[in-house]
């Protein structure tokens, strides 16, 4: 059994990447810290977590969904964006926004599936985290990737 510190070191960066992909803004640090804090409190109180890795991934995704809801709630309160230093920065930002919009256009389950897949999780691990049955991961994933590809083309992002 891994210690808490070992788990923190092993999963921090992967969870951080997932949070960034899910949220597309800079809340990832707080999200991941909260995830580990909750995990620490839970295990400290004597709760036994059978599958810590799945728990951490699930918890990160849940917090990202909560954060997105909050973000939507305060969508009117725009913070002025900083002026881009160069055309390259601007284009990079635009590309990022385009991909983010495509992901946002999909339902939460599909988005989670794609993000976990992009992080290299196996079908079994994706099934454990998302709750989608193992046997239907292949089909669901295939459809989800197709959908994202279509969405990216519609939004004008060039894959090639």
């Amino acid at each position: 059994m891994e210690t808490f510190e070992e788990m923190y070191k092993q999963y921090y960066q992967s969870l951080h990447r997932i949070a960034q992909k899910m949220l597309c803004h800079d809340e990832a640090n707080d999200i991941v810290q909260d995830v580990f804090m909750d995990y620490f409190q839970k295990t400290k109180n004597g709760s036994e977590i059978a599958f810590p890795k799945s728990y951490l991934y699930r918890s990160t995704l849940n917090k990202c969904v909560d954060e997105q809801r909050k973000k939507k709630k305060f969508a009117g309160n725009h913070i002025p964006e900083k002026i881009h230093n160069s055309l390259h920065d601007y284009e990079k930002k635009e590309t990022k926004n385009c991909i983010a919009r495509c992901l946002e256009a999909m339902d939460t389950k599909t988005r989670e599936l794609i993000v976990l897949y992009s992080e290299g999780l196996s079908y079994r691990e994706i099934s454990d985290v998302t709750g989608i049955t193992f046997t239907s991961i292949g089909k669901t994933l295939s459809r989800a990737l197709k959908k994202l590809e279509k969405e990216l083309i519609i939004k004008g992002y060039e894959l090639l």
């Binding site: 992909k21 597309c24 990079k92 992901l103 994202l148």
Partner: peptide, 12 residues
């Protein structure tokens, strides 16, 4: 698609 999603990760 993996490359596109990686663009969302601004920093490691």
């Amino acid at each position: 698609l993996k490359q596109s999603l990686d663009l969302l990760v601004t920093k490691q």
